[in-house]
């Protein structure tokens, strides 16, 4: 009886030590879940989800404060990926945060721009260049299409222009399966 107890106790101590060692030795730095969620989010930094950027939203999802269907730029595809990652049910995009739109870039009408710098301050990725009293312009490849610069403009000279399909961005479509169509 005593031997058995001793054996069990010893086993518990050894296993506990091993677990404790492993916890220290293989400690994961940071929060990998937040990183992973952030990796799925489109990095538009638009704040449509109600958080100041993609990373805060990722943090909120990881903490369980936010739902996974609040990101319009990520679209259905993004929600599906988040659902896969987190093992949750897929949900359609929540309407209150906006609708999925084709990817666009901001274009400043340079004839109207008065150089007020308000859009510069609004841009989350510093994709607008210019200085006070000088006309501004958007660096298209760096624009994430977040629309945050549109509202502050006092002269409404910023328009969101959908990115047209070009030879470089053209994609082959998913094959249509006749069987599925017939079914």
């Amino acid at each position: 009886m005593i031997t058995a107890l001793l054996v069990m106790a010893l086993g518990a101590v050894l296993l506990g030590a091993a677990l404790g060692y492993a916890a220290v030795k293989f400690r994961v730095e940071g929060d990998p879940l937040v990183e992973k969620i952030d990796g799925i989010l489109p990095q538009t930094q638009c704040g449509q989800c109600g958080y100041p950027g993609c990373r805060p939203y990722a943090q909120a999802i990881a903490n369980g404060d936010a739902d996974i269907n609040c990101c319009p730029p990520g679209g259905e595809d993004g929600i599906r990926k988040l659902a896969d990652l987190l093992g949750r049910e897929f949900k359609p995009l929540s309407g209150e945060h906006g609708v999925e739109k084709p990817k666009s870039v901001a274009v400043i009408d340079e004839n109207v721009c008065i150089g007020c710098t308000l859009c510069l301050q609004a841009c989350p990725v510093d994709a607008i260049v210019g200085a006070a009293k000088q006309m501004h312009t958007v660096i298209a490849p760096q624009c994430t299409g977040c629309e945050l610069c549109v509202a502050p403009c006092p002269v409404d000279c910023i328009a969101m222009v959908p990115i047209a399909e070009s030879m470089d961005s053209w994609k082959w479509k998913y094959p249509v399966i006749e069987i599925r169509k017939a079914a």
């Binding site: 990095q43 990373r55 510093d126 490849p141 760096q142 994430t144």
Partner: peptide
């Protein structure tokens, strides 16, 4: 593009 945007955002 997303990585780039994230970098710029974090820099900002």
């Amino acid at each position: 593009a997303a990585d780039h945007a994230r970098e710029r955002y974090e820099f900002r």
